[in-house]
Design a protein around this nucleic acid. Structure first.
Lengths: 337, 337
DNA sequence: ACACTTCTTGAAACCGGTTTCATCCCACCA
DNA sequence: TGGTGGGATGAAACCGGTTTCAAGAAGTGT
């Protein structure tokens, strides 16, 4: 690869001039600019990003630490992030924490000083060690993470509100015995959804029966087990609200296995609206979370923070979910696509 | 952040010595090493990766260009790649081509000279422009890509063989009218699977009825439409082999809508075994592709190529798929999990 | 014709590492 | 005791850009 000095020599100018041409910057005589551009083209020259990074102390890269599980959910997020990053001239360096503290910290320290900002998703690991590992010299944006890890900006979902919508939907359909499948105990979203469930029951004047709450862990099998458990009750719920779509899918599987019909015997609603939800049969009613948008906005804000280092208070944005009623609660009466 | 010179000054040695200490390299007197390490710790020093990259002309990063669609499939691939990359001390810089030539080329040129090797997935875009855009100064590993884009190494799936397994399975179940839903015309995997289908029919002495082949594009809706089309035939197939799982899922949806039972009325088999396949009801029979392993191996090989620049002929590895029979072909007789 | 801006350009320092090559020191051997 | 070889260290060049600062060129007004 040819360097800036090659171009300078070929064009008969100094490196400073070549640099100026490539940075649109200050005034270079049009004639000179033309000559430089011509030489650059002939030599197939492109500025070396590494050298540029060293000189400017800017890498034009964003680091992303996320659990590479829950495939669909995070892929959608990454799509949004990539779209934003590319359009803003940044790169995304991705590395997976396996929801383990050690891996998360290691990822952070490998990324730090290699990126201009860090995006961290650590929903299941509220840990002091992680909080301490977050760099201070670059902006940190956290998503779906405990208050503990929040730094310059945080992007969250209005989980309580979303849970309220889910319960309200079921109540409006006439259900009074509404079960709930929780996510992992440590997970912030999970806890908020649970609280939303409880509050909504109260708002609608329904009694809280703790036997209707079954523990899960945001995975398909856990949803299946939780549903099995609810079905063993002497008086099972007529509707179940699962803390996320994956568990709802597990629950669906359990209901099928027991020969129960959804929604006739048991109505079912999930949370997140992963692309898969509408592909199940019956298609899964759920609470839509704008995953793609959240990713996009998070990256956008990260680059804002890079350009204008945090002067004001930390930002915290909550995205509003919305109800997406489908067959798993409405039945086939609604002949949707 | 403190620099190598700060440490040198603090320890009363030269920068060369500090550099040596941090590169395990040549002999430094133990006493000196101790002093340097001590100072480094006190100053919270860590070598600057950018400076290191510039000096060594190695970034310790791998570039990945892939279409960020087909969520589940690629996420699984990325998981494997990340795992390998981290364990080998590399970073993964991901950027999405949207299956568009322009975006792919742009991604390649942004990544090039920022990474030590390139991993490219461009299944749908056999383009001369892309082939020309591939850098020559670093290793290029391609996955699921047309011969056209193949360079130092290629990782592929034995699609013909896989298709053969699918057809054989259906034949063994007694089917003779076996439909096929194709993927995008330009897609390599799609074409190979189609060829495998045709060959297998011939091998089993079945006639080829071109009306049983419906075009799709590897997406859920396209699978649905293709199935609708097959159902409009005067004599529809009794079994359908879809070119990938997503289209099989679409076909399943179409069959449900028509009130047809799977597999009693129509048996269905897909290809890829994305995690979702076993979650459908009925669970989807399919041809398993070791997606995670392919990602892992591809990255591993990329780092091998970095360490020992290509001396031998280009490598081409085909992964062998295997049949995963589930309910969508077997029915409930097999009470699988 | 002269002093004074305003443009344009280049030399050199700098970013933070690695590496070559020379030097110094010391032990070892004749 | 003096020469020699090897181990430990440092000075300086280098990687490929950006940027400061100063100087030269060109243009303006009187």
């Amino acid at each position: 690869m040819s360097t800036i000095r090659d171009v300078a020599r070929a064009a008969g100018v100094s490196v400073s001039t070549v640099s100026r041409v490539f940075n649109q910057s200050s005034l270079v005589k049009p004639e000179t600019r033309r000559r430089v551009e011509e030489s650059a083209r002939r030599l197939d020259y492109a500025p070396n990003p590494t050298a540029r990074a060293l000189s400017l102390n800017k890498t034009q890269a964003l680091g992303l630490v996320l659990p590479l599980t829950y495939n669909e959910f995070f892929m959608e997020l990454v799509r949004g992030m990539d779209e934003a990053a590319v359009s803003l001239g940044y790169h995304l360096i991705i590395t997976g924490s396996h929801n383990r503290e050690r891996d998360t910290i290691e990822a952070i320290s490998m990324l730090r000083s290699r990126v201009d900002a860090l995006l961290v998703i650590s929903p299941n690991v509220p840990s002091e060690a992680i909080a301490a590992a977050l760099p201070t010299e670059i902006p940190v944006v956290s998503l779906f993470s405990p208050r503990y890890h929040q730094r310059d900006a945080t992007f969250l979902v209005s989980n309580e509100r979303g849970a309220g919508l889910a319960v309200q939907h079921l109540v409006e359909l006439g259900h009074t015995r509404i079960g709930f499948i929780t996510g992992p105990e440590a997970n912030v979203d999970s806890r908020e959804r649970y609280r939303g469930y409880l509050n909504a029951l109260q708002d609608h004047g329904l009694p809280h029966d703790s036997s209707l709450v079954a523990p899960g862990s945001f995975t398909v099998p856990s949803g299946m087990h939780a549903m099995e458990r609810l079905l063993r009750l002497s008086e099972p719920p007529t509707a179940v609200f699962a803390g996320n779509d994956f568990m709802a899918i597990g629950a669906l599987k359990a209901l099928h296995r027991h020969g129960l019909r959804v929604p006739d015997d048991v109505a079912l609603i999930g949370f997140d609206d992963v692309p898969m939800a509408q592909l199940m049969s019956p298609s899964l009613s759920t609470i839509h979370v704008p995953i793609y948008d959240i990713g996009y906005r998070a990256v956008y804000h990260a680059t804002e923070l890079i350009a204008h280092p945090q002067t004001t208070d930390p930002l915290s944005v909550r995205f509003e979910p919305r109800l997406v009623p489908r067959t798993s609660t409405l039945g086939c009466s609604a002949l949707s696509s």
